[in-house]
């Protein structure tokens, strides 16, 4: 399988590469349009701040390319938020692939939402082999509200989108590459799509 990880200087690329390595899977790191287009599957990692990440994507013309992709695509953490329309983080226009908005947590609870939280209302083969209430690791201050493209939820304290799917675009707010055996299973499930 030709697996490509989108390279735009996202912070957690190394962690995603290592997670794949632990599963015995080779991946190519690339920002080249032809290489990404030719991939069987694409992983889009991300941590950090939305407007800087968008600037990195634009400087590589990836903001034009990514919405045109048709193969199974997996956005992780900020890589999920960037697929949406607009973020309250620095009032940033995003890639506009998934028709959702990204909002800041408005809660008395601690922000960032940092640590292990439960997955609920799991849908789609992305969560095959997992159970309701399995734990995954989160670190984020912005979230996507539950909507028609939500395929898993967590609560903090209100339910929010743990994962999204829109056509071939899958995405997770949590970090599967840091979520122990449950996270590995989700990566394997994506690769088997």
């Amino acid at each position: 399988m030709n697996l490509v990880i989108v390279d735009y200087k996202a912070g957690n690329v190394q962690s995603v590469m290592f997670a794949l390595e632990r599963l015995g899977i080779q991946a190519t790191l690339s920002s080249d349009a032809e290489t990404i287009k030719a991939a069987d599957k694409v992983i889009f990692p991300g941590v950090g701040e939305a407007s800087s990440a968008m600037a990195q994507l634009k400087s590589r013309n990836l903001d034009k390319l990514l919405p045109t992709l048709e193969q199974p695509f997996f956005g992780v953490c900020l890589g999920m938020q960037l697929l949406c329309q607009h973020s309250e983080e620095s009032d940033t226009e995003l890639l506009g692939i998934i028709p959702s908005k990204v909002l800041r947590f408005q809660t008395d609870l601690k922000v960032p939402h940092m640590g292990w939280n439960r997955l609920e209302k799991l849908q789609t083969p992305l969560f095959g082999g997992l159970q309701e209430q399995d734990y995954v690791y989160y670190v984020h201050s912005f979230y996507v509200p539950v909507n028609e493209n939500t395929i898993a939820q967590s609560s903090y304290p209100e339910p929010f989108s743990a994962a999204l799917q829109y056509k071939n675009f899958y995405a997770a707010q949590f970090h599967p590459e840091k979520s122990g055996p449950a996270g590995s299973q989700i990566i394997k499930n994506f690769l088997a799509l």
């Binding site: 190394q14 962690s15 290592f18 997670a19 390595e21 632990r22 690791y137 670190v139 970090h175 590459e177 840091k178 979520s179 122990g180 055996p181 996270g183 590995s184």
Partner: peptide
């Protein structure tokens, strides 16, 4: 740090 990241799957 690299070696740790390669081997463990928690933060």
């Amino acid at each position: 740090v690299k070696d740790i990241a390669r081997h463990i799957d928690i933060p």
